[in-house]
Amino acid sequence: MSLSTDEVRKIARLARLAVDEEEVTTYARELSSILDLVDRMNAVDTAGVTPMAHPQHATQRLRPDAVTEPDDRDRYQRNAPAVERGLYLVPRVVE
């Protein structure tokens, strides 16, 4: 198994995912099988192949530098659970 249960816990914590303790072993096994596939691909000699940044053979289209978005704050803030003086309120973050 290429991925340890500790690594699964760490990845879950970094991604803020709650993973039940009994699921950890299952995830370790399943994620490991994905990594094993990656290992098999890594074994292929790719010298001389340009790394692919995106599966589509296309490049980024650029937009002109112009302001096109109107202020629609009130509408967006109707989705927010708490708002005050135009600010979105979230549980206190202590630095």
């Binding site: 708490a82 135009g86 600010l87 979230v90 549980p91 973050v93």
Partner: peptide, 14 residues
């Protein structure tokens, strides 16, 4: 993020 008091919450200006 504005950490002054918003009833114990943090205000966010994006």
């Amino acid at each position: 993020s504005l950490h002054e008091d918003f009833h114990g919450m943090t205000g966010v200006d994006l």
